[in-house]
């Protein structure tokens, strides 16, 4: 018989395994804010841009949604996290900006400082 602690630790290990299986260890992780406020500011379209980019062949990207971190006046927000680098957080991301982030940041590795929070 496993104890609750042992069970939960197993569950955690499995969860981590599943997350990694979905590509979490990709070099880049992209998080799009998807709370009511972010969606109202247009984040669904932004999400779509990134989904499409992955469908169109941008590789090595782990895409996920996230809740609201509290920066209401700068929404929608998008975060690009690369291992060993400082996380980059973009504010007021329109679909056009999202396309530029795909082209410039994800494809060419350029951090677009003027949109950073």
């Amino acid at each position: 018989m496993l104890t609750p602690m042992q069970i939960i630790k197993n569950k955690r290990a499995e969860a981590v395994h599943r997350i990694i299986g979905k590509g979490y260890l990709s070099t880049r992780r992209v998080y799009v804010g998807m709370a009511t406020c972010e969606i109202a500011a247009g984040s669904k379209d932004v999400m779509q841009v990134f989904r499409q980019a992955i469908a169109d062949g941008v590789t090595d990207v782990y895409l996920s949604q996230k809740g609201c971190a509290g920066r209401c006046n700068l929404e929608p927000t998008v975060e690009v996290i690369e291992e060993g680098k400082i996380p980059v957080k973009y504010g007021r991301v329109s679909p056009q900006r999202a396309r530029d982030i795909v082209e410039r940041h994800l494809k060419k590795g350029e951090v677009i400082t003027e949109w950073m929070i």
Binding site: M5, K11, I19, Q65, G67, A69
Partner: peptide
């Protein structure tokens, strides 16, 4: 709000991975 804006709220794995439900256990 420790996890807000960090994890995918629709995926329990994200919560479990961050010591989720360990307090319950």
């Amino acid at each position: 709000l420790r996890n807000c804006g960090i994890i995918d709220p629709e995926n329990i794995d994200d919560y479990l991975a961050l010591r989720g439900y360990e307090a319950l256990a």
